[in-house]
Design a protein around this nucleic acid. Sequence first.
DNA 1: TTGTATGCGTTATCAT
DNA 2: ATGATAACGCATACAA
Lengths: 320, 320
Amino acid sequence: MLSGKRQVSEAIRERVMRVVEESGYRPSATARALAHGSTRTFGLVIPPTSEHLVVEQLRFVGAVAEAAAAHDHDVLLSPSGEAHESTFDRMVGERRVDGVIVMETMLHDSRVARLIEEGLPFVTIGRTGAEEAHSWVDLDYAGLVTEAVTRLAALGHERIALINRPQRLLDREYGPAFRALDAFEKAVVAHDLRGTTVCAEDEEESGAEVTRRLLGALVPPPTAIVTVNERALDGVVAALRSARVVVPRDLSLLAVTSEEHARAHEPQIGGADVPTTEMGRNAVEALLRRVTHPEEPLAHVLLSPPFLPRGTEGPAPASA
Amino acid sequence: MLSGKRQVSEAIRERVMRVVEESGYRPSATARALAHGSTRTFGLVIPPTSEHLVVEQLRFVGAVAEAAAAHDHDVLLSPSGEAHESTFDRMVGERRVDGVIVMETMLHDSRVARLIEEGLPFVTIGRTGAEEAHSWVDLDYAGLVTEAVTRLAALGHERIALINRPQRLLDREYGPAFRALDAFEKAVVAHDLRGTTVCAEDEEESGAEVTRRLLGALVPPPTAIVTVNERALDGVVAALRSARVVVPRDLSLLAVTSEEHARAHEPQIGGADVPTTEMGRNAVEALLRRVTHPEEPLAHVLLSPPFLPRGTEGPAPASA
DNA sequence: TTGTATGCGTTATCAT
DNA sequence: ATGATAACGCATACAA
């Protein structure tokens, strides 16, 4: 009972503190966890490295670790993917953690099912199909894509392309890819435009390749591109430059990507930020509430960062 | 004693297994850790997110998590930096882990001192000044930079620039930055060349800015650039393109960076790979040996990936 | 081969 | 206000 939960006289308190100082005593986290029933540790399920990890995700991992540290909690990593299922299994089965944050949540997610079954508190990054049933923190991809299309429509664009995340993620019903596609198609119909949607891998070369295809195969080509694929964006910019397509004179370009990444380009790419730090902080705090106050309502945090024009959107060029 | 350490008759084994199945029993990791004295967990000290994290580092974190998982171990994150010292303190002080992997090791590193003091097994990524005193996994930056300079000298280059990691890391005596600089200066002298060394932040814009300075301020400008700064490389390439400098016709460019990153450029950048996966695996296995066989010699793993020319090095242009 | 008791280092609950 | 003691859930050593 070293940690001040008891009424202690000043004298004895002094004495104890002195001994603690001198002997360099530190309580054992393991023993405390066993006795107290809480590990002061959160699990973080990260995407497999076999897929291309993006800077956004790294920043998020760091943000979670730092936010957890701010609340005196540690973070236990659990790589997901076929080969590493056992880690997740250990984490939840052996109760190594008080709660879990799940990255790259799918609309139908087996990990979420397992967590519900085990009754372990958790927060997902991105919503599942049963979004009312658990806490989540998500980015409003649908709203942001809709806004992008609306802006472009207002500027007179009639042919717009969406460069989405990898097809594999769409197939596995990855929320952001799924919702971006859905919102894009609806917005295109609403504004009576011609929309094209393509997937690119999370890598530059794929983004470049897809862009070349958009410019070459489509007749006439789109006058604006919207993308939610951070890594592909680099390739898009490179391909446009190679093709001597000047932004925004010949083509408008908007992206949902981390602000740091958007501003690293020349010109800086307009669009909305993926606020990784804020998402990490929100996730940790939501999880903490689930753990300490299970009776409180679930947290549903839908972040909608402002759209920042940075000069990469302009009026549609006179038709070809 | 569920885990096969005891001689059990087949009959009772069956019975136990059946009950385990039916009741969904799972041993508690915490209780086991307390009784057995080992947590089956490794700590991983990551750089602060306030600095620009690079893809290399993210891949390394993932690689460590996956390598640890392959040996039935989990990974506990510890963000380093002023504000988060408490996390590290908890990790080692309260013995939440069996061992620690330290990223971004400095030549004089307080965390290493602490770990030695505590007698906790650990492996550093990069060497400290007392490299014989502990296990480490490092990349041979000195050797790779030397090879780059030697190659360029053989091609007739006489003015070569090194774009290093941020000045801040040099000031704090960060090994890779330190050794790259040292090796560069020695190689330049050995081949009787004119060398220029500059630091760039870990971001594109800084790389571009530094490159513009090299091309503009130096008269005559260098005919070759060597860099160990992954993020700055993007800026270097962009600045060269803007300045209409054609690689390798006008200038040779070599980089030590992750292969994935080097190949994402057009043209692909020649140089040496930063083998993050291999480093992660080596670090985990070295740490595992320290934990299980403390009497065995320390592991000193110096990785020296092959230099891969990819067409960005050519003969020195006829002098201006 | 099998049952039983004690210890791991805390927290929490009793009496005092 | 303080001291003693029982859990916490498992491993291990010792009896049986």
